[in-house]
């Protein structure tokens, strides 16, 4: 049988059209409707922390631990106490402490020759997260609503992401041997509640915010306050903003 160039082009062309029609049909009919009222595309979560309101009580750490069954000795959120002495005579490194993640608060501090303050920390839920970039199996990802999550069924426990996180927010769960981290209480915020740490902060130092909600107070706060993210030079797109943050904080 002779096959001419014309035949190849006719058959090939028909196959190409069939394939593209099939693919288009799958695109149109394949998407499943959402299961409930929460729409991923309507949210972009983050947090605002006001350093001038934090009293270092550790309520957030305890609440997070109870809400998420965080194993003992590991922390999804923690509080640090910075002590920066007067640097006129000599340059000193700031003294940073966080006894057991501040789960039992801090021992009282006597006045020092300088300044001291508390800094609550948690996953920054970066938009361009280094931890997501290094995951070899697609187990960690930024969700469509802006939360960095871990797929516990895919995680191999290789710890690349633990090393990649510039903020030290990840740990290997001692029982499951998979990586665990702050989920921004995803099981709560998708049901209309705030996070456990924000719910239990007695001074309102922490505030869960939704950047896609035009009525959210975040827009007013970002417009009228001096805010900063941690390690801005890492260009991680961190979405945990700090008000009144000192330059010494890393």
């Amino acid at each position: 049988m002779d096959i001419s160039r014309r035949d190849i082009f006719t058959v090939g062309g028909k196959l190409l059209i069939l394939a593209s029609v099939g693919a288009t049909l799958k695109q149109i009919t394949g998407a499943e409707p959402p299961s409930d009222a929460y729409r991923l595309a309507d949210h972009w979560w983050g947090m605002i922390i006001d350093i001038d309101k934090c009293i270092g009580c550790g309520n957030c750490v305890r609440a997070c631990s109870k809400e998420n069954n965080v194993p003992e000795g590991f922390f999804r959120t923690w509080v640090e106490r910075y002590q920066i002495e007067d640097q006129i005579k000599e340059v000193k490194q700031p003294r940073v402490e966080s006894p057991n993640g501040a789960i039992d608060g801090f021992p009282p501090l006597a006045p020092i020759d300088g300044k001291s303050f508390y800094v609550p920390k948690l996953c920054n839920h970066c938009a361009d997260s280094p931890c997501v970039q290094v995951c070899p199996v697609g187990a960690t990802f930024v969700s469509p609503d802006g939360v960095v999550l871990v797929d516990q069924t895919y995680c191999l426990g290789c710890r690349y992401c633990v090393q990649a996180c510039p903020y030290g927010c990840r740990y290997l769960h001692p029982e499951t041997q998979t990586v665990d981290k702050c989920t921004l209480c995803y099981h709560r915020i998708t049901k209309g509640l705030t996070t456990a740490c924000c719910e239990n902060c007695p001074t309102g130092a922490r505030l869960l915010v939704d950047f896609k909600n035009p009525k959210d107070p975040v827009h007013e706060i970002l417009r009228t306050n001096k805010v900063q993210v941690l390690k801005p030079y890492m260009a991680t797109g961190a979405k945990v903003y700090y008000e009144n943050l000192d330059g010494a904080v890393r």
């Binding site: 609440a63 516990q152 995803y186 099981h187 509640l193």
Partner: peptide, 17 residues
């Protein structure tokens, strides 16, 4: 590049507060 079912898995966690 991830399994969308993971979102539901995380959401199933029980609420304490």
């Amino acid at each position: 590049h991830y399994r969308p079912g993971a979102l539901d898995l995380v959401r199933q966690h029980p609420i304490a507060f």
